Computed example of a mutant assay.
Amino acid sequence: MTTAAIILIVVVALAFDFTNGFHDAANAIATSISTRALTPRVALGMSAILNLIGAAVSTRVAGTVGKGIVAAPQGSRGLALVFAAVIGAIAWNLLTWYFGLPSSSSHALIGGLVGAAVVTKAGFNAVHWSGVIDKVVIPMVISPLVGVAAAFVLMLVILWVFQRAKPGPMNKGFRYLQTLSAAAMSYSHGTQDAQKTMGVITLALVTGGYIHSFRVPAWVIFSAAAAMAAGTYAGGWRIIRTLGRRIIQLDPPRGFAAEATSSAVLLTAAHFGAPVSTTHVITSAVMGAGATRRISAVRWGVAANIVLAWIFTIPGAAVTAALVHLAVMPIAG
């Protein structure tokens, strides 16, 4: 029974990783597609490969998700918790994808873990609240603010440096630079998002008694990275349109500014093991870079809907996961 449950969790977790890939593909390549720096398939292919490489580099974020969010009980009850968390995250991913909203897959998974944990016998004590606040809530608030401010400042610097440049040659040059910034964004996305799935699968292996300490096995790293890359190549066109065109019509310099600042924020967060949202960072950076044209150039109504999706992601996924966990608990025993 335990073996079958772990296999089921691995399959479901990799399915979540796949949905994370097509849901968050927009994070890495939407701006490059909207500015015509890259064709859609070239952008998605490059993003998939660099997601794969980035996912295999480090497991610090995986450790935070697997050890620092909840204390899962051993055995079948712990496996039921992990299963419910992933189902809750998948449900939220599909809902926001349907409406074209770039919400956070990372926070959906974390919300799922918290929601499933609070309906266990330990209740709210099953959640490491200090870890949630320090590693999730604080970075969740700070990272978008840094993204919007850094992109705004970088774009002002670009405008000042190239104030005498002709628009045509300047845009052509920044399209080439966007290839590099999109690559950096894809790599940094891999260092963040695939790590969460690795953490959940490893948590299931620990609670099921298959491994005795939290150390991510090589096969988990490879399978999570591959699932993320496959999902990225599948593409999430609804969200690509929202991020690339509906917030603001970007030009190549602004696309470069948004991608460059976002990748820097994400790589810094990954270094410290903080599971920040790639979606929050790039969306905020797009707003910051776009606002240098004029504040009214940003479609703030669309931005407000995105922020609402951010706010409801953790509680929405938590409620869904809690209901799933309550349904499967009688089976788990």
Rank of each mutant, 00 (worst) to 15 (best):
G208I: 02
A257E: 03
T31H: 12
A151I: 03
I90D: 05
F22I: 05
A309E: 12
G115R: 05
A85L: 07
A297E: 10
S105H: 14
W219T: 08
A258Y: 07
P102W: 10
R164H: 14
F272R: 15
A229F: 04
Y176A: 14
A274M: 11
T268V: 13
N305Y: 13
L52I: 05
T31L: 12
P144I: 10
Y210S: 06
A80T: 02
A62V: 14
K135M: 12
W237A: 07
L205C: 10
A48Y: 12
A15R: 10
A122N: 04
G78H: 02
A321W: 00
A322P: 06
T232Q: 04
S130L: 11
I221F: 01
L266W: 05
I211Q: 07
G112W: 04
L326A: 13
A182F: 11
G100Y: 07
A260F: 15
F162S: 09
F18G: 07
T268N: 08
H280E: 08
M155P: 13
G231D: 07
G168V: 11
L113A: 05
V12C: 03
A332D: 00
T202W: 06
A25W: 14
F222Y: 14
K67N: 15
G66C: 07
L44W: 00
A304T: 15
L8G: 01
G273C: 13
D251Y: 10
P330F: 06
F272K: 15
A229K: 09
Y98E: 11
A327V: 10
I90H: 09
T96E: 09
V216Y: 05
A291T: 12
G231P: 11
F124M: 08
G66Q: 02
W310S: 12
G66W: 02
A332M: 02
A55D: 13
L180A: 15
A226K: 04
Y98M: 13
D251A: 11
G63C: 11
F256P: 04
G21A: 15
P139K: 08
